[in-house]
């Protein structure tokens, strides 16, 4: 089909208009969300090292469900445990598990997906059936199964949660590979003698990265919520290990009397997930430009 010759010379003026206010708007989002995320991560991982934060499991029966005060910045829980330290330690675990599970899920998923997309044919069918099997299980049930039968350690939870992202990444990365494999530069690479491995590593992956990264951040947000959900159900990290979901369970009954027990973890969950998503999107915009 004869094509419109709008490619040469320089960008027609209007195209420049369509560019996102690369200087301004997205930078703000990037900075703010990145800042919030950075702060949360910093304090969760490094806070306990230099802040005078009491042991999260320290029981102080004199100050049960106390309101926020100087000694306990966020108040205390049912056993007098400091909520701030619960948030920090619980956050560290949540974030660790979320990041790791996404990374594992992404790697495995992309391996399936890219190979599937590039090779096509029988390999494609077989690999995608495997992914479909995983997809067929309701993710939460699968996680529950793993947790019940394998255990509730950090590692077990990470693996369980990574199941969530494998099929999603598998399908997504396959779609990306299929979309890219007919692009002329891939065809040219084949003509130059490239085999599938080279194509994936040098051509598909770098071009799929921005999308995969955003997807990763979105997935991370989801994992954090999923983990909180599991914890809320009592199937996450076993007490006395603090977790945000666990804090919500514990504070549920006291919503009217000691709302801080629920509100604090909820606010943190919200802040983390929202900033993770915004950051991922802003990053993708940057990488595209």
């Amino acid at each position: 089909m004869p094509a419109p010759p709008r490619v040469e010379g320089l960008l027609p003026a209007e195209v420049l208009l369509d560019e996102p206010e690369a200087g301004r708007r997205w930078d703000r989002t990037l900075v703010v969300s990145g800042g919030v995320l950075g702060l949360i991560v910093f304090f969760c991982f490094l806070g306990p090292l230099f802040l005078p934060v009491p042991d999260p499991s320290a029981i102080n029966l004199n100050a049960i469900r106390a309101a926020p005060s100087l000694g306990h910045l966020f108040g205390t829980g049912s056993d007098g445990e400091d909520l701030l330290s619960q948030i920090l330690y619980g956050g560290r675990d949540s974030l660790e598990i979320a990041i790791l599970s996404v990374m594992i899920g992404a790697t495995v998923g992309c391996l399936f997906g890219f190979v599937s997309g590039i090779k096509g044919g029988i390999i494609d069918t077989v690999l995608m059936r495997c992914v479909d099997v995983l997809l067929a299980f309701p993710a939460l049930i699968l996680a529950l199964a793993v947790v019940t039968y394998v255990g509730r350690s950090s590692w077990d939870l990470t693996i369980a949660l990574s199941f969530f992202s494998v099929p999603a990444y598998g399908r997504y990365s396959r779609a990306l590979a299929v979309g890219l494999r007919n692009r002329e530069f891939v065809v040219n690479a084949r003509l130059a003698g490239a085999r599938s491995g080279h194509l994936i590593w040098r051509h598909i992956l770098p071009n799929a990265m921005p999308t995969l990264l955003t997807f990763g951040f979105l997935a991370m947000g989801f994992q954090i919520v999923a983990l909180a959900g599991l914890s809320f159900l009592g199937l996450g990290l076993a007490p006395p290990t603090p977790s945000w979901g666990g804090m919500i369970t514990a504070g549920e009954a006291y919503l009217s009397t000691a709302p801080q027990m629920v509100l604090v973890p909820v606010v943190f969950l919200l802040a983390t997930v929202v900033s993770v998503n915004l950051f991922g999107d802003a990053l993708r915009q940057r990488m595209r430009a």
């Binding site: 027609p12 003026a13 209007e14 420049l16 208009l17 560019e19 206010e21 690369a22 200087g23 301004r24």
Partner: peptide
Amino acid sequence: SFSTPRGLVRA
């Protein structure tokens, strides 16, 4: 002319 992030474009 358009004012774009890259400057004034005199189309």
